[in-house]
Nucleic acid binder design. Structure first.
Lengths: 244, 244
DNA sequence: CGCTCGCATTGATTCAGATCAATGTACGGA
DNA sequence: TCCGTACATTGATCTGAATCAATGCGAGCG
């Protein structure tokens, strides 16, 4: 059951503990015990360390619940050209597609606990429990909305607009409101950010410096970001009228 | 049948006729008559001519069934910067999001018959009929998969790769297999294609000429395209190894 | 506690695609 | 059938981001 890294896992979390997180987040409230058990029986568990791809690319779609940590879903356009399709955080449900026109791989950004299912098995069970498919549909539509927003950014926004949007997005998802602005600890590297925004590391770095110089945010170390001026960032995020 | 001119609609299609198309495509086979009637009662009908945006941007998500014609879903990044998020053809079910970070509008590419629903009403009813939510989920996941593929193209592919992918995609959706290759009648303009691929009209035109010169396809008039060499196009569509 | 390697920043140059600018051509209407 | 206009193609130039190339810095290890 699941590969736990190479050395060993420091925090000891039992399978039932982890499954409980899935269950309270995803299964409907008044869910029958039988359903609970059925899902538990098809669930697979994986503990991954930063950089790991916790499971082999499969010929069937996978549903992955992030019980702990954060991950990125990467599409390989060709060797050396990767596109980060989405980032995920605790409580997220990820739809990992089977290999199609491109190969998709889920990578752990930090130490992760994942619960995963074959999507066909998952949906077969989901049908028995009212509200379950609804939840899945809800989350699929959220993923769709995010993917569309990403497409708009990649298709029509400048490097700076993309980076500004990225920070606002991340703040909404993993930031915490501070007195002056928002603070967050980014689990992904500059290279991940670049691959997510369709840019290079260098461009990300340059644009970040510009935002810093403009007094819109500050950084601490490699991963902490402090947004000082939400509206300033929002106006640089592409809702501007460039000419006129 | 067929549309000649704009004065009035030549083909007379009654509401029940159109709804029947929706029903046979989307509603489950052994669907209860009651469900059928309930959906019919919340369905709204619109007939649109090329270029129309058949309904006002709403504060609620819409579900649109394309009973006839084809459409584009456009996100407005800012005035003068539009991103085509998706194209749709007969039988497709479109999820039109409410105004969020960007404004989304559905435009008719040619004469269209549309059946639309408020998504909340739609899903409330869908819950009564087994298989209905499944169908919606299925289609949402297809839309998600397409949107992700688009993100990969926009983030990591060259102009030529994007255009080649576009033609292969369109052939799969609206092309017909001919003796030598695939033939299709594109309902969208060069400008729509550019806005879909995150390029300019000029770049689309230049890359199209290159593909034409390379003997991979021919064009006839503004909208007919004949793909001569599927594999050649596929290899230019971004599964190439650029260096090495 | 300092070393070191991998990550990040900064700078110089190049290049794919945008922009600006004609010119050509399909197609709907008179 | 011809005409006008909107759409499409082609060409010249410009530019934002990529690429190439050092240099700086921070976190994990000995």
């Amino acid at each position: 059951m699941g590969e736990h890294g190479h050395k060993k896992d420091t925090r000891e979390m039992t399978f039932p503990d982890l499954f409980e997180r899935f269950s309270s987040e995803i299964l409907p409230l008044g869910c029958a015990d039988a359903t609970h058990l059925r899902f538990q029986s098809i669930a697979r568990f994986a503990s991954a360390r930063a950089g790991d791809a916790p499971f082999i690319v499969n010929d069937r779609d996978q549903i992955v619940f992030i019980a702990k940590g954060s991950s990125k879903l990467v599409a390989e356009a060709s060797q050396e050209r990767e596109q980060v399709v989405a980032f995920h955080f605790v409580g997220d449900l990820v739809l990992v597609p089977a290999r199609g026109a491109h190969a998709y791989t889920l990578y752990a950004l930090d130490n992760c606990d994942l619960i995963f299912f074959q999507s066909d098995e998952f949906f077969k069970l989901a049908r028995y429990e009212t509200g379950m498919i609804d939840e899945a549909l809800e989350r699929a539509m959220l993923a769709l909305a995010r993917s569309r927003e990403k497409a708009v950014a990649l298709g029509r926004k400048s490097a700076q607009e993309r980076l500004a949007s990225f920070f606002l997005n991340m703040a909404e998802r993993i930031g915490s409101k501070h007195e002056e602005g928002w603070v967050m600890q980014l689990p992904m590297s500059r290279s991940d950010i670049a691959d997510s925004l369709g840019l290079t590391i260098e461009t990300v770095s340059r644009q970040l410096s510009e935002l810093r110089d403009a007094g819109l945010l500050t950084t601490q170390g490699r991963s902490q970001v402090h947004l000082l001026d939400w509206d300033g960032l929002a106006s640089r995020a592409g809702h501007l009228v460039p000419a006129e």
